[in-house]
Amino acid sequence: MENEAGALSRVAGLFSARGYNIESLTVAPTEDPSLSRMTVVTSGSEEIIEQITKQLNKLIDVVKLVNLSEDEHIEREMALIKVKAVGEAREEYKRLADIFNGRIIDVTEASYTIELTDSGDRIVEFIAAINADQIIEIVRSGVSGIARGEKSLHS
């Protein structure tokens, strides 16, 4: 999209005005500072996805749109998970973080903050592996996506 003030609210506004789901939305500038790139995760029937695609394309600020899920692609999301960590749990969380390729990035006597970057599904699995009452706080970045191979939004 054009890296313009208001572009984000046009997309968000479109989803709410037309009653489409937004599961997550990420946006940041790209290698070309006049453009920003947004990854939106949404759901709906085939017809609804078709309408969402067409409606987004209609926004004047949208330069190019691809439906990543139509092709091979990579999804990544970052999560910061703060857990209560005392006694035995400290070892347990360390192991769990290792298994999921997470990192403990902040430690206090009673807590860990674990950083995990993976697909949205894996993050959900990780969170599910932790006892809900041990979770202090979770921040998720929302998914960013990119096509596999040499393909890009420019091609």
Binding site: E50, Q51, N57, K58
Partner: peptide, 11 residues
């Protein structure tokens, strides 16, 4: 002229 008018209500 508007793709989003097509197959919106009726396939």
């Amino acid at each position: 002229i508007d793709p989003s008018s097509i197959s919106k209500n009726v396939k």
